[in-house]
Each structure stands twice: as C-alpha cells, then as structure tokens.
Amino acid sequence: MNKEKILEVKNLKQHFQTGRKSVVKAVDGISFDIYRGETFGLVGESGCGKSTTGRTIIRLYDATSGEVTFNGIDVHGTKSKKDLKKFNRQMQMIFQDPYASLNPRMTVKEIILEGIQIHGLIKSETEKMERVEALLETVGLNKEHATRYPHEFSGGQRQRIGIARALAVDPEFIIADEPISALDVSIQAQVVNLMKELQEEHGLTYLFIAHDLSMVKYISDRIAVMYFGKIVELADSEELYKNPLHPYTNSLLSAIPLPDPDFERTRERTIYDPTQHDTEDAEFREVKPGHWVLCTEEEYKAYQDK
C-alpha cells in the first residue's frame, strides 16, 4: 500500500457545553493518520465519541482544539469560501439512518444532483440526467428510480441512494458513519460489497465508523477502538483481532456473538473494569510497529513482552 497520508488528526478535542458548568468531553484528545486508499475503522460503543469524531473531521462541528490536516491543508484553519467548497467536494459522508438521511420532499434525482448543483459541476440538463443515471447504475439501482421519492424505497435502497449522493461530487475521502447498522443482515452485505467495489474503482479512502466489530474487521485495513472519547488501541485489523492488548478491546471482542452455535456454547466473556488499571497516566504508545495502545509505562513493558 502506498503510505501517503490523506488525513492527519492531531490531538483532536470536541467538548460540548451542556450546562453552565458541565462539559461533555465527547472527543478528548485523539490522534491518528489515515493513508490514501485504505479503510480505517473506528469502533466503539454508543457515546464513545466515534460519530462526533467523524462529524468534527468533516466540519459539521467546530473542533474545541486540535488539528485536522486533509491533503496537507489544515481543515479547521481554512476559512475562504473557495477552499471550503473544494474541501466539501473532496470529503463526503454517508449517514447512518437511511430514513432520516434523505429529504422526503425531493426526488431521487434532486437528491443525487444536490452536490452537483451546489458546486455547479454540470450545466446542461441532459448531462445532469446522464450523470444521475450513471450514478444510479453504479449503486445498483435503475434509471426509472430517478423520479421517485425516498419513501418508496426500502432501507437498503435508500442507503445506496445516499452513497450515490456522496459519489456525485467525486470525493477522495468518505466518512461512513455507521452506514450499515440500521440495515438488515442481507442488505448490510450488499452495501459493504458496494463500498468495497467503489473503493477499488474510484480509489476511495474510507473512515468507517461502526459498533459492529465483525463488519469493521471485514472491511477495514486498520482499526482504532474508542472508549469514552479516547482511542485505546489502534492496529492493523488482523493484528487487533489476533492480538488485542488493551483490556477494553478484549472485552469488546469477547462480546461479539458469532453465527456459530458450538462456539457460542463455549464462549467466555471478559468484562472490562476501567478501575483495574491506571488510566490517569496512560499515554498512547506504539507497542509494536503499527500497534498502538493507550497504556502506562508499566503496561507498556508488559505488552511488549506478550
């Protein structure tokens, strides 16, 4: 894989003021790099800050502090409208809820064309229609669907329309925020396969946010595990599954139910108790090449021996 960094996140923090004095540290100082052409999985349980991370990266939220560098440009620093528009084209997002992510009053054609319209990419009506038809075909729908409204489609079809909308502006980088968790199993596979195909054809880079570890494992090259606003472990997906170091990763892995009755009968679950180790002084350390863990000096040594 070519190791050019497309996105660098440095010490990103996103704190929300919820009351006069209370602050929710949704994202609390995370750093990671994403290489061009890879799929980077971000896993964690609800409330761990994974979706906030995605939304902050694409500037739906303004970061409290930290740096996001995309294609060498500081995303949160750019202020000129032109730069922002360029950025909006290069980075796109696929959303979780196929029912809420499409405007119910727009036709499929209008939805897909929205980005093209905003950026003025195509002027002539016939070319626009051709583009819509091509995009619909790319995501496995047909051109008769262009004049329909979202409520006429099933969840999986809607999700594919959402993908077509994101693809319409030819992005390089797509943040997929739990794109399959609201879908049925058989439909999940459709969408995941489609995303993989598109990645190969268009050389896309994905940030794949999910709570379903088995799917993330399947689609991702590298995975970061988030727990309460922090990344606790980051490694190649194979390495993370075979050799999880952080106790939270361990407990997460031990909790995934697998479609295999014999295995389920003998499964043993480990429970993560954050009080069992020192989390105050923990730092993000590279235990093995490419395998980072949030740990203390002591744990670091113990992990290296593993």
Binding site: S186, I187, A189, N193, S214, K217, Y241
Partner: peptide, 18 residues
C-alpha cells in the same frame, strides 16, 4: 452475508434485491 471473524477476505454473499 455475515463476515467470519477468522480472517478471510472473500466477498460477502449479498442477497441481491429487496
């Protein structure tokens, strides 16, 4: 359509259509 965790990278069998 469920990926197996034991690390093979074959394509998932998606049931086509709806």
């Amino acid at each position: 359509s469920m990926p197996t965790v034991d690390g093979n990278d074959e394509k998932l069998i998606a049931i086509p259509g709806t």
